[in-house]
Nucleic acid binder design. Structure first.
Lengths: 150, 150
DNA sequence: CCATGTGGTCAGAGGATCTGACTATCATCG
DNA sequence: CGATGATAGTCAGATCCTCTGACCACATGG
């Protein structure tokens, strides 16, 4: 939405953050595709990234991705059919199912994580360690007033 | 896409940036709706924010919003029908048309800009002036390695 | 054991995006 | 000045993603 100043010489901080975050995400997605998951869409990948090692309920995935449970279920269906996740009954709750990464899904996720880590190292190299630390701290400080779920 | 760690206690810097940028955008969009533009979707608003005071070509809007010219044209159609933008011939190029904000569109954009500016002032108040300045500088430094269009 | 809440699914609809193909105009270069 | 390649825009078709509303099954707390 109107984030102004993207038409100016100096975009505002919010726009710059958006650009940086997006570049990170794009690299991660490229890694996903490079890892062989050519049939995974960016949206599916974004949801897959929210799956915990021990499995996560669909409603939880939906909350983390800020989408409805129906949309999340739709995406999980696709990921399941493609073999990246599986649904197992939740032993703690008869209504629930846990979405878990398959071996294949885990491989894709690991590839993405590695690329993100590598990109952040590049940031640190470019900014210097001190500035990178300050950036991390500042973003953590900012979180309480920007993250409605934190 | 897999931006990892959003499932950990401490999301990585990229995720935090995404959250912050998104909160800014959400506030701006709320302001758009509050300004009476209840028929404008977030996507339309995002495109409208890219229109220069003197008008901008559809292809340029598309490039700035990182979408195809077809998608941009589709959105401009809707905004034009709703009365927020108008298309005028580009005097410098017979093929081109300039997309310009109408008076109504300008009012909406101004409302959004005001809210963004206000939000950034809140950030500064929360972080302190020094840290805010450092953040802005860091983000500018980061831009060359994250913005493929910069 | 009933009332309320929660996890999940089904059905239907709309919005946003893409690729491919096409026309009109511009710009360049011989 | 004419031919050639690039650019602005549109049309057509398809796909993907998201939502609302309704519904069922199970859980939890009086």
């Amino acid at each position: 939405m109107p984030d102004d100043s993207s038409t100016e010489d100096q975009p505002n901080v919010g726009v710059l953050m958006y650009v940086a975050a997006r570049s990170l995400e794009a690299r991660a997605y490229d890694a996903v595709v490079a890892a062989g998951a050519v049939d995974v869409t960016p949206t599916q990948a974004r949801l897959m990234a929210q799956v915990d090692p021990d499995g996560t309920r669909t409603v939880t995935l939906a909350a983390r991705a800020r989408i409805t449970k129906q949309s999340a279920g739709f995406l999980v269906d696709q990921l399941e059919r493609a073999g990246y996740v599986e649904r197992v009954p939740d032993p703690a709750d008869g209504r629930a199912k846990l979405v878990r990464l398959t071996r294949r899904g885990r491989a894709v996720g690991d590839a993405a994580d590695a690329v993100v880590a590598e990109s952040l190292r590049e940031w640190e190299q470019h900014l210097g360690a001190a500035r990178m630390r300050a950036l991390e701290e500042t973003m953590r400080l900012l979180r309480p007033i920007t993250d409605p779920w934190a």
